[in-house]
Write a protein that binds this DNA or RNA. Structure first.
Length: 450
DNA sequence: GCATGATCATGC
DNA sequence: GCATGATCATGC
């Protein structure tokens, strides 16, 4: 078998019919491509990233869409997207984002959401999720998800806002400042194996990195959660969706009535009891969730979007009382990472949601404001990057007890993060040291709020 | 006053 | 039992 060989004659399915496509797709669930195409001796030349998808198109669905602006199943209006899953402690998660087509900086500004090439191609997706195993041939990957996916209305509202944010930047000649952290579900992710390629953009001489529109990893995880647990109702007509405020505005609006109110008054407003003399360390985080109208510890909208909530307490002078902690790392695992795919970089690239409290002149703590924030590229790549590299170097050199302190860098430092001094972790040299994590400097956190 | 080390309280 | 977000406490 070779590329271009038409197998559709073996298939009792109609690639122009949505229902038929779905039936054929669903038949893949629980099988590998090799099993699904049983009986055919398969010799192929496909390999590397995207091999699964190309093979699936040609030999399972018998289509050859190429790089068209039309959906892959043109007549049915369905775009085929296969994507890898991987195992995590909690179950299956997305291995990466789902890319939905390169951004054409020059033509995008003249589009509206309704007429966008994005919507034209991607409003109706056939999602095929397969379990990626690094030691297997892609023909043996098991298909876990096969789902016709139209975006639920509440999601499409957010995606629309995301899309508009991206276009807005491109329009004003700021394509080079695009960042995946700008948006929630739909992201502008960098494309191209080497990071050197650049493209022209309108209204600026600056060249911009090539980027594609993508469903961000956190959102793909939300899709996986929904489809593996059984599908929800989906929207029938994307054009009918009504307008609403953006996700971030909606979230911020929930806090509006609490602005500048002292803690005890907020307690009253929320129908809580009196403020205890010594509130627990996560009391203000809990209060923040309650102000948002969320009961549990998880905030579903934030989980989907990969947004991280952090509470910040400011003193009278407006400076944060504390630096900002992150999960403790394991010395031996940290030194195996590279900065670009490090756990900490991954964490910092997310969108943050700060809930800010401040002491007034009488010393009374009040809710001040909320703020969505993404770390500027320079601060991440140059400042945090160097702290990270220095940390790894010192651990490798057996100096895990002397990691970069707050005075060494303006943005980040390393410091203990453990239950107590006996809560230790083994360094590569065998010494046991108290668990530590990366912190964002107190002073720096203060500056982000201005 | 601030950096640094140490620890608390919660919830899974 | 432990990770986690957050804050306390000490000493320079």
């Amino acid at each position: 078998m070779h590329r271009g060989h038409n197998l559709t004659k073996y298939m009792a399915y109609d690639p122009t019919d949505r229902k038929s496509i779905e039936v054929r797709a669903k038949a893949l669930v629980g099988k590998s491509l090799r099993q699904a195409l049983e009986g055919l001796s398969v010799v192929h030349e496909y390999h590397g990233r995207g091999a699964f998808g190309l093979f699936l198109e040609s030999f399972y669905f018998g289509i050859h869409p190429g790089n068209s602006s039309e959906p892959d199943f043109k007549e049915a209006g369905v775009e085929l997207k296969s994507f890898p899953l991987k195992r995590s402690k909690k179950g299956l998660v997305a291995k990466e984002r789902i890319s939905l087509g390169m951004i054409d900086y020059m033509s995008m500004p003249s589009e509206t959401w309704e007429t966008s090439s994005f919507l034209k191609k991607n409003s109706d997706l056939l999602l095929i999720g397969f379990l990626h195993e690094s030691d297997q041939d892609f023909l043996d990957y098991l298909v876990k998800i096969a789902e016709l996916w139209e975006f639920p209305p509440e999601d499409i509202e957010i995606i629309k806002e995301d899309w508009k944010k991206i276009v807005a930047k491109v329009r004003v000649g700021k394509a080079h400042e695009l960042s995946e952290g700008d948006t929630l579900y739909l992201g502008a992710c960098t494309k191209g194996a080497d990071s050197t390629g650049r493209r022209p953009q309108p209204n600026s001489k600056e060249m911009a990195k090539p980027r594609a529109l993508c469903l961000k990893q956190a959102y793909v995880n939300a899709i996986i959660g929904r489809t593996l647990d059984g599908a929800e109702a989906v929207v029938k007509d994307i054009g009918q969706l009504k307008k609403s405020a953006s996700f971030e505005e909606l979230v911020a609006a929930r806090f509006e009535r609490f602005k500048d109110k002292p803690i005890d008054e907020i307690h009253t407003m929320l129908g809580l009891g009196l403020v205890t003399p010594k509130p627990s360390k996560d009391h203000y985080a809990k209060l923040a969730r309650l102000m948002m109208g969320v009961k549990g510890k998880k905030i579903e909208e934030f989980e989907k979007a990969g947004v991280v909530m952090k509470t910040i307490r400011l003193e009278q002078d407006g400076k944060p009382k504390e630096s900002m902690s992150f999960p403790a790392f394991k010395y031996k695992e940290l030194v195996k990472e590279t900065w670009d795919d490090s756990t900490f970089k991954d964490m910092l690239e997310r969108r943050f949601f700060f809930v800010v409290y401040q002491r007034d002149e009488k010393g009374e703590l009040r809710f001040k404001k909320v703020k969505f924030w993404t770390i500027p590229t320079h601060d991440l790549e140059v400042e945090v990057g160097s702290v990270w590299e220095e940390t790894v170097q010192r651990i490798r050199a057996g100096k895990a007890d002397k990691l970069p302190g707050q005075k060494e860098n303006l943005v980040a430092h390393v410091r203990p993060h453990a239950r107590n001094s006996r809560d230790t972790d083994e360094a590569p040299d065998g010494k046991r040291l108290v668990k530590k994590c990366f912190w964002l400097n107190r002073e720096y956190v203060g500056k982000t709020l201005i």
